[in-house]
Design a protein around this nucleic acid. Structure first.
Lengths: 64, 64
DNA sequence: ATAAAATGTAAAACATGTTTTGCTATAATT
DNA sequence: AATTATAGCAAAACATGTTTTACATTTTAT
């Protein structure tokens, strides 16, 4: 599944490590998700959306 | 995390098994999620939202 | 040009999500 | 009242998500 985390994170001038801190995961987790190695858990998806000031449905582009 | 799957499923007069079929998981998975044993994966959350004619953000009530 | 910060990557261990099989209990249908 | 459909529950196996540790590469700042 694709997502707009990197774009939104950069728009907020935030590093992967900072975003990880705010969402209580490691920077490696943020990195892996941005690079679509795997999808976050639903709980983390909500945390990311909240932190990046958007919604889950907007942050993730679910294909079909 | 809480969700409105049961309510919406019943509104559509659907059984757990049917919803499982439509979203390609077993009825046990639907049952466990409805009874909040665990959260679905993000991909399944999207499938459920689509099938139940709503959005992920609406279907799941993320607390804080 | 150098140093510092940020990002990419990887393997092992651990945590959580899903299937399979099977059995019990409750609701709906005949 | 009996049968059938639906729902709850559980353990083992398997799949996916996250952390930890560590090192390499790229970008930004001095």
């Amino acid at each position: 599944m694709e997502n707009s985390i990197r774009v939104r994170r950069k728009a907020l001038k935030m590093s992967q490590a900072e975003l990880g801190d705010l969402t209580k995961v490691t920077r490696q987790t943020i990195n892996a998700i941005e690079n679509a190695k795997y999808d976050p858990s639903l709980a983390l998806a909500f945390k990311l959306a909240r932190t990046l000031d958007t919604t889950v449905d907007d942050l993730f582009q679910d294909q079909a």
